[in-house]
């Protein structure tokens, strides 16, 4: 008999969290812990009671990030059950309220756990922060050391040629 699939989304995440528990338990708050236990039962039932054969690649996430990811997934599961619509306002407040390091962590979590909504939300927010920045500022944000196109010592011609060919891009 074919094994029943766990529904994509929150359950899938909890599924992963169960495996993560031993790693991140101490960092998670009590509420989330009880949620996980509750959902452990739900997701155990949903998946036909068999977790044994599942292997999941684990992203390197802190407990704090996981708590945020859970907050996001819970909200979205609730609102899709209730109204079928996700609140853009809630998304905006959620992502607008996190500091930059956490933002990058949430993006990576969304990317690696394949939580599309969170991935889109965080990537768009990071993209929005990049608008209006110069390449130098972008290098600071992304901690990029090398700068071969502009650093005179390395390749002055390349940088000059680039600026000459695309003057309007720097206006």
């Amino acid at each position: 008999m074919e094994k029943q699939q766990t529904p994509f989304g929150f359950h899938k995440l909890i599924f992963i969290l169960l495996i993560l528990l031993s790693v991140s338990m101490s960092a998670l708050g009590r509420d989330i812990l009880s949620d996980i236990i509750e959902l452990k039962i739900e997701s155990h039932i949903a998946s036909g009671g068999n977790f044994d054969s599942v292997t999941v690649e684990l992203p390197n996430l802190t407990g704090k990030t996981l708590a945020k990811v859970i907050e996001y997934c819970k909200k979205h599961e609730e609102s899709s059950e209730k109204t079928g619509e996700l609140s853009e306002k809630w998304d905006g407040e959620f992502i607008g309220g996190v500091e930059v390091g956490m933002l990058m962590d949430l993006f990576l979590a969304g990317y690696e756990l394949k939580i599309k909504g969170l991935n889109d939300l965080a990537a768009s927010r990071i993209g929005g922060m990049m608008l209006g920045k110069t390449p130098e500022e972008i290098r600071v944000i992304f901690d990029i050391k090398e700068d071969p196109l502009c650093k005179k010592s390395k390749s002055p011609k390349e940088g000059e040629r680039f600026a000459r060919d695309n003057p309007w891009a720097f206006q």
């Binding site: 990317y111 990071i126 500022e137 901690d143």
Partner: peptide, 22 residues
């Protein structure tokens, strides 16, 4: 530029090793 906090330095994965896909 100096007021812009670095995403990478506060993230679990340093930016120099951020894969191209990301």
């Amino acid at each position: 530029a100096s007021q812009v906090p670095s995403i990478a330095s506060r993230s679990a994965i340093p930016s120099c090793s951020l894969p191209e896909d990301i």
